[in-house]
Amino acid sequence: MISSAPPPPQPERPAGIVVSGLRKTFGSGSAAVTALRDVQMRVEPGEVVGLVGPSGSGKSTLLKCLGAVLTPSGGHMELGGQLVFDGDHWLHPDLTRLRREQIGFIFQSPYLLPFLSVRDNVALLAMLLGRSNQEARAAADQLLADLDVAHRADAMPNRLSGGEQQRVAIARALINRPPILLADEPTAPLDSPRAMAVMDLLERLAGQMGTSVIVVTHDEKILPRLQRIYVVRDGVVGEGQRERVRDAPVRFRSRRLRNT
């Protein structure tokens, strides 16, 4: 059984992600679908938390709101200590720039640009932040070395194995050291040891860089690697206990939780 977890400890520095009262309804009238109801979340810098739940429960919707590509119907969001969504409008004038500077993304597939070398795939975002090509490529090489794919830096992405590609994608997400990292099923295409390696990496880099990481996953093997877990059900997000979830991963035998 999953029970209500104690509220997370109050940190000295501002939290990476703070969400309160977040709502999202698609459509209107009788066709309205409520995908998120009154979501409360808090992820500290350096913390890696999971987001689990059955299909259609609202995980992706939440990730899109956090990633500033979907406008919530209500609530508040703070990213990297900055209030970015306030009730009914974004406070940041340029959401593309907000994403570029504050948020890293990792997907189920690596989605690397097939026509750029591994190095340039990673360096591209640093260049977008105005760093010189040389600087950006040096930073990319460093990160690729950290992720153990430095020897493939000059290769084209389609020459890499799935695991290598996923590590390159992680490097791309982290090149600008964003305070937030959102990962959508990052281990889905990987076998168990590789999935573990990716989780190790996320954990290590998050710790080093003070990044708040949210990992959406169906993948029960990686649950033990997560420091905390949020369970989503019918648009309601509650905190779950990791051990219990691991014990009964298939059906998520959790009762509905409403924090506060």
């Binding site: 593309t96 994403r99 570029r100 948020i103 993304f105 640009l113 975002l125 977008l128 997400a173």
Partner: peptide, 11 residues
């Protein structure tokens, strides 16, 4: 790729 580029912040 274009969706991904936009998501990760390419103008």
């Amino acid at each position: 790729e274009i969706a991904v580029l936009k998501l990760i912040g390419m103008p």
